[in-house]
Design a protein around this nucleic acid. Sequence first.
DNA 1: TGAAATTATGAACGCTGTTCATTAAATTTG
DNA 2: CAAATTTAATGAACAGCGTTCATAATTTCA
Lengths: 204, 204
Amino acid sequence: MGITERKERDKQEMRKNIIDAAISMFLEEGFEKTSIRNIAEKIEYSPATIYLYYKDKDELLYDVQGEAFTQMFELFKKEATSEDPLKRLEQICHSYVRFGINNPEMYDLMFIIKAPMNAVEEKDEWRNSENCFDYLLKCVGECIEKKLIRFEDVSIATLSIWSMGHGLISLDIRCRFKVMNMSDEEISQAITKTINEYLRMIKT
Amino acid sequence: MGITERKERDKQEMRKNIIDAAISMFLEEGFEKTSIRNIAEKIEYSPATIYLYYKDKDELLYDVQGEAFTQMFELFKKEATSEDPLKRLEQICHSYVRFGINNPEMYDLMFIIKAPMNAVEEKDEWRNSENCFDYLLKCVGECIEKKLIRFEDVSIATLSIWSMGHGLISLDIRCRFKVMNMSDEEISQAITKTINEYLRMIKT
DNA sequence: TGAAATTATGAACGCTGTTCATTAAATTTG
DNA sequence: CAAATTTAATGAACAGCGTTCATAATTTCA
């Protein structure tokens, strides 16, 4: 009964095909300008065909989001490898912020827009970000264990660090720092400095 | 020549009419479900009429955003009035976070979505948030002056505090804390605790 | 009162996500 | 191998969106 297996393989392949097309279009044309019709055109299928593999756009975006988190996770594993947990925490933070600033469209999908989270409404759990989140959580846990940071609760510490990073990235991406009347260069430097100041303050 | 003045008054009145309708619809139906056509229907005008007062939706949203910031500014002036700058800073932070959690649709417009910022692209300055931002900036400035917080640079300090608050609010609004597997109640408590921990750490 | 300027609108354009009856292809059965 | 059945793909359509523009209604000015 190898046919049903091959069919399943084909199905997964088609899904990959769709997602890859979506990702490349996000990077080329931006997120907002990418529609189901555009994606269908890119892979040379009818728009209706996409609905044979994804029940709606939100579900498609959910899978794209998963792919994006995999990419960021790989980045973490490459750039945040120090043996010292505190040092590694700093590496993660800077890696995270750099990723956000350099890949605004992907960051959008991962952390800002609502759409992909609608697909999770029912199953009530969001697994896409688990790899990255756990990577941070584990690191923060080690820092607390060795009393390297001024936190006692791992959850609170992780929440704090994540929120600081996300706050900086998302306010920047969405141009809210315009109120500060700084040049792009100044903003970029201020973000880095703010992260460093924060890391300095949470140190024991 | 009172006629041109009255015309100008009428024009402003109509704009107010449009904005008020938009705001009430955001609160009732949510942001995403509110279209130009819906707003036009609500004020009993043709959709095309709105374009006589606003060149596009972004410009309309920009004014709604301005109104929202005025409201939050009033909230700050009411809830953050302590003489002690540090105490006032804490009041602002909690006021800010509470506003965001309780008014997600408005917060969306003010800090998350891209649309209203497109209207600012040309004039290159974003005045809508100035009242609130300056209120925070002034408070932080006093805190630094009196050496109540472990910052030296007012801009960096303000950036840090704002980003922490925004990070918490926006990740919550967009359901990204789902990865933590906590109940709504637990998340709410964790957010408050994270803010308090942060305020504790930046204290001298 | 009639001409000119302003204000309002209905209809249309091109786009969106999505559905569904119909067609084309692949697989199973006789 | 051919016929019947299941699976896959599509074109056309629906209802919605932001926006534009020629036309119509109203108001102002001479």
